[in-house]
Amino acid sequence: MKKKFNSIIKNIRSNILNLTFKAKSSHIGSCLSIVEILVALYSGVLKKKDRFILSKGHAALALYSILYEKKFISLKTLKSFGSNGTILMNHVSSKVNGVEFSTGSLGHGLPLAVGKAIKFKTNNQSNKVFVLMSDGEINEGTTWESLLFASHHKLDNLNIIIDYNKIQSMDFVKKVMNIEPLKSKFQSFGCNVYSINGHSVDEIINFLKKKSLNKPKVLIANTIKGKGVSFMENNNLWHYKNPNQVELSRALKEIEKKYA
């Protein structure tokens, strides 16, 4: 039976592959791991008044691709990725319609989200704030500074999603800088924490909609870097490399078959 979100997931993954190839850009693995998270956010979770910040700005192409699917930007704009003079930077840019904030340097999204959340809270506004971070950003001091503040001020309008694909830039997270036990770290900072399947759109939606009284919510989304393309999965080569023509054709075929 065809799954509800297969079509949009297929389109986004295909666009990520095609445009990374065309632009000879990088971070393909980081883009592929967050596709279901973005689909969940943009399929009924995010309301017009809510805010979403992509803190792992290097996965810009995944966000641009869903913004195209959701009609924030045109196909022409999306296809300008990688061309001279485009506003579609390889790190996400707020000049693009639908993008809340430009990021690119890690550890900036959460403090920003905390600022929006405290503004809404102190101004009696019901807007929610969502921020998607990489597991590499767990290394950043700002992550823990922000969590202290968010927890102290009971920012239950703040939803933090960790793309836990377990590979950071140079190697596996556990080899570069062990962050485990991650769940209890967040719990000890006063958050409601859920460890979920980051490739199940329904599960992500379910947990994103869960109420979190008096505490910020953290979803540890267990994902696979390079998800959807067998030879890209769990391989940090694809943090950097762009596919050649043969690799692209093979990858697209796999995506076509998997999300038919």
Partner: peptide
């Protein structure tokens, strides 16, 4: 608190609203 990076990022977040 004594956390200037969060303070400044957060201040940008407040100002953006």
């Amino acid at each position: 608190g004594v956390s200037e990076q969060n303070m400044m990022g957060m201040s940008a977040g407040i100002a953006s609203e």
